[in-house]
């Protein structure tokens, strides 16, 4: 929302600079971690955690979501819900093993008995 006294705005500007420094450091961390010999699973988890922290900083401070109206929070909650549904689609597809080789092999084995 932003509070418009000059002192409050100047304090905000200081916070923006601190957030910028944090984002720059986290970008370096993201790149540095990619050079470590991590398994793909661990690399995905670490990269997404760092990206989420960076995203949260941008949303909280630059988009001033720390201090916003309820209308926006409700709208974002609905967006998060539907975004979750979008992410469940590939998760469901990955978890679905119907018709995969393991099952085919097992069924084939049963036919022999």
């Amino acid at each position: 929302m932003g509070h418009d006294s000059p002192e409050a705005i100047k304090a905000e500007v200081k916070r923006y600079m601190m957030v910028f420094a944090a984002l720059a450091v986290l970008t370096i961390v993201t790149v540095a971690v990619s050079y470590l010999d991590l398994s793909i699973g661990a690399a995905v988890v670490v990269a997404m955690i760092v990206a989420s922290v960076k995203g949260t900083l941008v949303a909280a401070y630059f988009m001033h979501l720390l201090d916003e109206r309820k209308t926006i929070y409700w709208m974002l909650a609905m967006t998060a819900l539907f975004f979750g549904v979008l992410m469940i689609v590939p998760a469901g597809a990955i978890a679905d093993h119907t018709g995969t080789s393991t099952e085919v092999a097992r069924e084939g084995g049963e036919e022999h008995h």
């Binding site: 990619s34 990206a51 941008v58």
Partner: peptide, 21 residues
Amino acid sequence: GLYWHFVDLVWIFLFPSLYLL
């Protein structure tokens, strides 16, 4: 500014997803 930060936010996720993983 809100639009611009969103574009930045998308890149924050695109960068590791497409370049580093």
